[in-house]
Write a protein that binds this DNA or RNA. Structure first.
Lengths: 344, 344
DNA sequence: ATGAAAGCGCTAACAG
DNA sequence: CTGTTAGCGCTTTCAT
């Protein structure tokens, strides 16, 4: 049924190893022979078996993708599917296959990884997210297995990762707001325990300073988590002491909560979020947001991993992916911040 | 490095074939021997190599998932990621791996499938969507390769597939609307060329009849595609001849367009869509919709395929997955159908 | 109930 | 430049 390397060899009147050499276009093969072999391969519709190749060659050319499995709202944003697409496209172009697995918990994730590694199915692993104190990363490190993380790990030494430049992204947001004429810009962050929050806060401060604006600590608040409720609470704390005319939030959800708080207090503010959630596009007003470019985060992660696997001399252990601002109504013409009544 | 079947065999003082038998727990193995072998496997942390097993055994225990790659709005709804999760979970539980690939066009999809098959990487394929006149299906059929389609294929003979009961889903929608007190219910469908549209229309008619309501053909319109614009146009045609008090659309997008048309004409209507898009949850008013249960569609597809691969005697060549109605404001208290100004 | 041996399809020294 | 020879780790007759 399946046509093998042997048959090609016979047809071309050479040995299997010669065919193998043609397959990898080894330099030392006469053009004439190569021609004959290629022709035979085509005539027979020959396709090398990756399975056999893997067994003999010690490398499977496939990558394992580990996905978290949170509550459904994890899927409200299109981050994962876009990242998966980015990974897939890059992998295809470079002859790699992708296996994926959703997990239920961090423990199970580690099981998958163990399984991936022990079964020798995959050459390397991509982690779709990075947690605080990430045990998957710790495990992969301990096994010395090639991997790359989407998101900046706490310890970046000897680790490959991709992420956005969070400092710069927030810097740009604040800059943009200042240009729109806003002067009292609040910062609504997630927990400061996260690098991402701290980096964005730093970007916020720097932008104000560079613009010659004062940094008012009363305009800065930390949310307990990346939720709408946290955004609401944090904004309420700000409003108790100050009156912003704009708010830069580190997540769309925080922005929604913040807008709600402002609405209740009758304070008009412009708002910018992060992550380009679908909801932000249909909320009233539509929310200006920072798109973190998940496709490229995915393809870069893949690029890095494949580079490692192919033993290339990588100039870097990480990639910084550009973000871009999606301008919408929440920062235009100082629209009144109306929130959906449903949320009240 | 990697511990193989041989070492286990030595440790247990048996031959490799015996170890292999224990692995598949063959009946004719003495308990004593089995015990020794299992013990040795554990002591050595033995993990069989799926690659070697595949080469020897002719089966890879992996499934190829083919995903379309439309414009970004394809990802507005969470259908694919949810289906992928369903597939992944089921596959894991049954010892299968999943490979996936996004394609750019139908041509390329076929290339992937060819690649999957010829390379003998996968035992079977799942198609994440079904098109009219689907060439992937035609190709897979022609090759006689095991596959299952998510969505009902035009020709169901000798084909495995999973889908919702579209007749029943729409039947239930209309029933629900009647119970809410609506009497002049419009049907806003996608192209009638699709089975899904025809089936839903049939469910619509039947429900009206069973409720003793008249079917007014003026209340039925076919959209040119599954877009907001089509919904708008189709609704305008209806409004030219009739005045509905509710609209049942075969997709959230059609519903959005229909609501916009009604709004312009000053006609108040209740509305129900399909597919539970994220946008529907935040639109004003929030949209009642039918959730088609993508997770189960995925896991059932996987179940069917694995059944086929394992040579089970399947009682059926398809599964019908239940839908459920997500009640929201658009069908409550006859709320005024306000559309986002952004859409005008 | 268990072992020996052949082979799955390909790669990789090692010869020439 | 090209052929020969061993495997890679496992399954699977065929014996015993």
């Amino acid at each position: 049924m399946k046509v093998t390397i042997k048959e090609v060899a016979m047809q071309a009147n050479v040995s299997p190893s010669t065919v193998s050499r043609v397959l990898h276009d080894s330099p030392k093969i006469s053009d004439e022979t190569k021609r004959r072999v290629v022709e035979a391969m085509e005539r027979l519709h020959y396709h090398p078996s990756p399975v056999a190749r893997s067994l003999a060659g010690k490398t499977t050319k496939t990558i394992g993708l580990v996905l978290p499995n949170g509550p459904d709202d994890l899927f409200l944003n299109t981050f994962f599917i876009r990242a998966m697409r980015g990974i897939s496209i890059y992998a295809q172009e470079h002859g790699y296959f992708i296996m994926y697995a959703f997990s239920q918990s961090e423990d199970i994730e580690i099981e998958f990884i163990k399984n991936y590694i022990d079964s020798t199915w995959v050459d390397g692993v991509i982690l779709a997210t990075t947690r605080q104190d990430d045990r998957c990363i710790a495990y992969l490190r301990s096994r010395g297995f090639p991997f790359v993380a989407i998101g900046r790990p706490e310890e970046t030494r000897d680790t490959y990762w991709v992420d956005n430049d969070n400092f710069q992204a927030m810097y740009n947001v604040v800059n943009y707001l200042v240009e729109q004429g806003y002067k009292r810009i609040a910062f609504l962050g997630g927990p400061l325990g996260y690098n991402v929050t701290r980096n964005r806060l730093a970007g916020y401060r720097q932008a104000l300073v560079n613009r010659g604006l004062e940094v008012d600590e009363h305009l800065i608040a930390e949310g307990a988590s990346f939720t709408e409720e946290s955004g609401y609470e944090a904004m309420m704390r700000i409003l108790a002491e100050a009156t912003p005319d704009a708010v830069s939030a580190t997540d769309d959800l925080l922005a929604f909560g913040g807008l709600k708080a402002c609405d209740e207090k009758g304070v008009e503010v412009a708002a910018v979020g992060f992550n380009n959630t679908v909801r932000g596009a249909y909320q009233t007003p539509t929310l200006t947001t920072v798109d973190i470019n998940p496709d490229e985060l995915g393809s870069r992660a893949c690029e890095l991993l494949i580079g490692v696997l192919e033993g290339e001399d990588l100039p870097t252990n990480h990639f910084i992916v550009e973000t871009h601002l999606v301008e919408r109504d929440s920062t235009r013409s100082r629209a009144v911040a109306q929130v959906d009544p449903r949320l009240t």
